[in-house]
Design a protein around this nucleic acid. Structure first.
Length: 109
DNA sequence: TATTTGACCAAGA
DNA sequence: ATCTTGGCCAAAT
């Protein structure tokens, strides 16, 4: 994308994508990497952890490819619980700690 | 410059 | 269903 040309670094591209996820939808670390034409799944997680602005960047909408939540605010149980709550409040169903990806995934085609 | 560190992923000795 | 392993890549140390 031409718009991407002016992006500074990897982290910022990740944050920008996340801001596009609407309430009630989620995406995975892998999908983000794919959208950026890279295989840096892990680096995506790191980027979220380094998220400078949790207010404008809804990092709770990013989960693992197997439907499990992944981490939030360091990978404490408490953080994940919070992530779970936020998602439910937005309408995302979570059964047995997992999300139905088919149903809630936001794709970046 | 080199090594270490992850909020990951997929396959399975 | 859970755990281990090797691979992956950018940032931090």
């Amino acid at each position: 994308m031409l718009g991407e040309r002016f992006m500074k670094n990897f982290d910022e591209r990740v944050w920008n994508l996340i801001r596009k996820i609407p309430k009630g939808k989620i995406t995975t670390y892998k999908e983000i990497a794919k959208a950026l034409n890279t295989k840096a799944y892990r680096a995506v997680g790191q980027a979220l952890k380094r998220n400078p602005n949790p207010i404008s960047t809804p990092c709770h909408r990013v989960v693992c490819s197997d439907g499990k939540l992944g981490g939030y605010g360091g990978r404490s149980k408490k953080g994940v619980d919070k992530k779970s709550k936020l998602l439910r409040k937005e309408g995302v169903e979570i059964k047995k700690g997992k999300i139905n990806l088919e149903k809630f995934m936001r794709r970046f085609d």
